[in-house]
């Protein structure tokens, strides 16, 4: 044990006195100078920011990895009974797990956003392509294709047109069931269809079918060149603007006293995905009747109960 000498005691008194004076001075400075108080806080926060022990708060993955690397260097032979080492390793492991999940979630989000962006761009490109080739954006392919006209519909239209002679054009004729119903002596019936597979099937059965767009097809005829025009499936898939154009062409090529027949599947009765995907496409029978009347036609509407095509609108050109 080292004895405390008189000199040391004197030194102690001196040191205590100076220490007390300095501490008083420092307290006064801190109290009187708010800038000093702020600086003290900033100085402390700066150390917390750069000190490796403050990694959790700053959540820097790189620093965390450094810590993990350090932990991995701990010798397996080192004592493990100490709570400080345990708590350090556990804390770092928790940080690592949290960081790992954070990283994985970020990666998935990034992939998800990237795919979304690609799909949106792809959709935009397809839409632009469709517009460039003058076609309607195709959504109908997502719904069931329009079936061939039912026998009742074919019979109704054939009955309506039985008194007519001359050329009859069936627009969107499918593989030609309606043409077969209309075929009789003194009448030249032809059909136009966009789907070449259906057309090939009809041609093989000896029918006069052509591949093409309805509007383009009608535009090839002169005014009043046809006795009748029948508009079938296509009218379900065109927007109002295109349908008005189609209707104008049909009336132009139909002779006075001739008829334009429209087989209408009422868009209001659509169900399931088609109700969403085909919104805004096609017109209701009343609308067809109204449009024809506005063009000076006399209009008759026939109902077909239990059929997919519920109405047939017949407009007589005057």
């Amino acid at each position: 044990m080292v004895a405390v000498s008189n000199d040391q005691r004197s030194n102690g008194d001196f040191a205590d006195r100076v220490q007390a004076e300095i501490e008083r001075d420092a307290k006064r400075r801190l109290k009187e100078d708010p800038v000093l108080q702020r600086l003290e806080r900033e100085v402390h926060e700066s150390w917390v920011h750069v000190s490796p022990g403050a990694v959790a708060e700053s959540a820097s993955p790189l620093s965390l990895l450094e810590q993990v690397e350090q932990v991995s260097l701990v010798s397996v032979d080192a004592p493990t009974g100490d709570r400080h080492l345990h708590s350090y390793v556990k804390r770092t492991a928790r940080k690592l797990v949290r960081w790992y999940f954070h990283y994985v979630v970020n990666q998935l989000n990034a992939l998800h956003h990237y795919q979304n962006r690609l799909l949106r761009e792809f959709n935009s490109r397809i839409t632009r392509l469709e517009i460039d080739v003058g076609d309607e954006p195709v959504v109908r392919d997502l719904c069931d294709p329009v079936p061939e006209p039912e026998p009742a519909l074919c019979e109704l239209i054939a009955t309506t047109l039985k008194s007519f002679q001359g050329s009859i054009s069936v627009v969107s004729c499918g593989h030609g069931s309606l043409l077969e119903a209309l075929d009789r002596p003194g009448v030249a019936v032809h059909g136009v269809e966009q789907n070449d597979n259906l057309v090939t099937h009809g041609i093989n059965r000896g029918l006069d079918l052509r591949v093409g767009s309805p509007i383009d097809h009608l535009s090839n005829f002169g005014d009043s060149a046809l006795a009748a025009v029948v508009l079938a499936g296509v009218v379900e898939h065109y927007k109002a603007g295109s349908l008005v154009t189609l209707l104008g062409e049909a009336l132009r090529v139909t002779e006075t006293g001739g008829v334009v027949v429209v087989a209408v599947a009422d868009p209001r009765t659509r169900v399931g995905p088609c109700a969403d995907l085909m919104q805004g496409l096609g017109l209701a029978p009343e609308t067809w009747a109204l449009l024809f009347e506005k063009h000076g036609c006399s209009v008759d509407t026939f109902e077909l109960n239990g059929s997919r095509v519920e109405s047939v609108v017949v407009a007589r050109v005057s």
């Binding site: 490796p52 350090q70 932990v71 260097l73 701990v74 080192a78 100490d82 400080h84 080492l85 350090y88």
Partner: peptide, 18 residues
């Protein structure tokens, strides 16, 4: 004291504990 080193050099902290 080992706890002063664990934040910076864990292996040295372990040696101090030992």
């Amino acid at each position: 004291p080992a706890e002063l080193y664990y934040r910076y050099v864990p292996q040295l902290g372990a040696a101090l504990d030992l």
